[in-house]
């Protein structure tokens, strides 16, 4: 995930606060980050003309009931340190930490067309089995514990056929479009005998 080191440090600190379960902290931070995705709210909290006290007051009103005291205090600290612009990145960092902790993997799968639910399930289970077998190839450090999968599936007809999948910084592209591109490259570089396909007049 894309988090810079400042945000990651804050996320790490939040994850290590005792008293609240990591999963709960993650869920609460996701709630906060969803609110911060609104441009108006972001503008309000990024504005240097509004005092920290006002910002804290608004935060308390908005999230006082829905998040734990620890998370609220953490948000206050972020405001005190003028790191409010990092809230979205902190949330992403916390998700990354939680993913590692709970051995979660988030495959991003692209298919060439829509499949009926039954077939899609089958594809997903095949993908899960593949990742499980090739954990090391996909950069998964934990080689033994059960993996919790969180799939994101998209359809892109440009793929022509096959599957494109990305897990973190690793990509597995078995699409037809990729195959054709590679094949074209091989023909152009002379790796495939051109005489086999081109007959001179």
């Amino acid at each position: 995930m894309n988090t810079d080191s400042v945000a990651y440090t804050y996320a790490m600190a939040l994850s290590q606060i005792d008293g609240v379960d990591l999963k709960k902290k993650e869920a609460e931070m996701i709630l906060v980050s969803e609110a911060f995705q609104s441009p108006e709210i972001k503008l309000y909290f990024d504005s240097p003309t509004i005092s920290i006290a006002d910002k804290k007051e608004k935060l308390k009103k908005a999230f006082g009931q829905s998040v734990s005291k620890e998370v609220l205090n953490f948000l206050f600290l972020v405001l005190d340190k003028h790191r409010e612009t990092f809230i979205l990145s902190i949330c992403a960092g916390l998700t990354e930490i939680a993913d590692k902790e709970f051995n979660r993997v988030r495959p991003y799968v692209i298919l060439s067309r829509n499949y009926p639910e039954k077939e899609l399930k089958k594809i997903i289970s095949e993908i899960e089995a593949l990742i499980n077998v090739h954990r090391k190839d996909f950069g998964i450090e934990n080689q033994s514990d059960k993996i919790e999968f969180i799939h994101k599936v998209e359809v892109q007809p440009d793929l022509l056929g096959g599957i494109y999948m990305r897990v973190g910084d690793y990509m597995w592209d078995s699409s037809l479009s990729r195959f054709l591109k590679d094949w074209k490259q091989r023909v152009l570089s002379g790796a495939v005998d051109q005489n086999a396909v081109i007959v001179a007049e």
Binding site: G139, D169, D173, V192
Partner: peptide, 21 residues
């Protein structure tokens, strides 16, 4: 025919590539 042969041999091994954004 060449394509068929290539397709038949394709994907025999898992090619995972490292990527960035």
């Amino acid at each position: 025919s060449v394509l068929k042969r290539e397709i038949a041999e394709y994907g025999k091994e898992l090619n995972v590539e490292e990527v960035g954004t």
